[in-house]
């Protein structure tokens, strides 16, 4: 960690203004929200910017609300505010619980959901769970608004598909008409998790899983799901239970884990099996409305 190099902060008052600034500064500028990852990388001299465009000053960008059966989380909402939001605790306890285990309380009090997703650090907890919850990213740029799937937003390690002048404004998560059970588990020894695994099950009745979404994060450059795995995770509960090892194998194949300081690819593939089973057990024990 070194002294920060000199840079200028520009505090935008509206999204349009922020988008214009970003377009103007190009490579020399970067959007700045909580800064818990960006400023750390700058202090380690891994990233250099002359201009930071602060979007925390845009009114209402941190709003958390329920509209038209969809939960909207504004991009500058902090992890801490999401963790403590009564709305989220009621409708998506799995999100509140995931947020409660993001980094540490100092990071959660400053770091934002939007910043986390757009920094696209491969070990992001929210990116993994939100992909499982079929969340959508609302994006606004100088050419207007668009909506992206989570796996479209996150393009790779430290990489999003946003254009230079585009800003993530909110994440929208649909409530489910069907009863839904969800779990997010992670395995963590170091500062960054070895593995994060999200499982969302839609239930027909007590014994039948109508649809499933399983996402594994941290093991490879971006959160990953697999149609094959999800097909194996749907059906009568006891049948799915027997298919869990096959589903885990399919998920591991899709994720294609990498060797790094958090563990070898082989170990991570093994852990996907362990934690898919644990998430399955956890999800089905948890009686909640939307996960």
């Amino acid at each position: 960690m070194m002294p920060l190099r000199r840079f200028r902060i520009h505090q935008a008052r509206e999204i349009k203004e922020a988008a214009e600034m970003l377009a103007q500064f190009g490579d020399k500028g970067r959007l700045y929200a909580g800064g818990t990852e960006l400023l750390l990388a700058m202090k380690h001299d891994l990233l250099r910017y002359e201009h930071l465009v602060d979007v925390k000053t845009i009114p209402g960008l941190d709003k958390i609300e329920l509209k038209n059966s969809t939960l909207h989380i504004g991009s500058t909402a902090t992890h801490r505010s999401i963790e403590n939001s009564p709305l989220i605790r009621e409708h998506f306890p799995v999100i509140a619980e995931m947020e409660r285990h993001v980094a540490n309380v100092r990071v959660r009090a400053t770091g934002t959901l939007g910043g986390n997703l757009c920094f696209a650090e491969p070990h992001s907890d929210p990116a993994t769970l939100l992909l499982a919850l079929r969340a959508k990213a609302r994006v606004q740029g100088s050419k207007g608004e668009r909506t992206l799937e989570m796996d479209e937003l996150v393009a790779g390690a430290y990489e999003t598909s946003l254009a230079a002048d585009e800003i993530l404004t909110a994440v929208a998560i649909p409530l489910s008409a069907k009863p839904r059970r969800a779990a997010y588990l992670k395995f963590q020894i170091h500062e960054r998790p070895t593995l994060g695994l999200a499982l969302v099950l839609e239930l027909d009745d007590g014994q039948n899983i109508k649809a499933a979404r399983a996402v594994v994060g941290s093991v490879s450059p971006k959160p990953c799901r697999s149609d094959k795995a999800e097909a194996l995770l749907a059906g009568p509960r006891d049948k799915v239970e027997k298919q869990l090892p096959h589903a885990a194998k399919a998920l591991a194949e899709a994720a294609d884990p990498v060797d790094d300081l958090e563990g070898s690819a082989e170990y991570k593939r093994h852990l996907i099996g362990v934690f898919l089973r644990r998430a399955f057990d956890r999800a089905l024990q948890r009686p909640t409305a939307h996960g």
């Binding site: 960690m1 750390l40 170091h190 960054r192 300081l261």
Partner: peptide
């Protein structure tokens, strides 16, 4: 040294 920071050194 690849884990020479308190982010990586546990």
């Amino acid at each position: 040294l690849v884990n020479g920071s308190i982010l990586d050194y546990r």
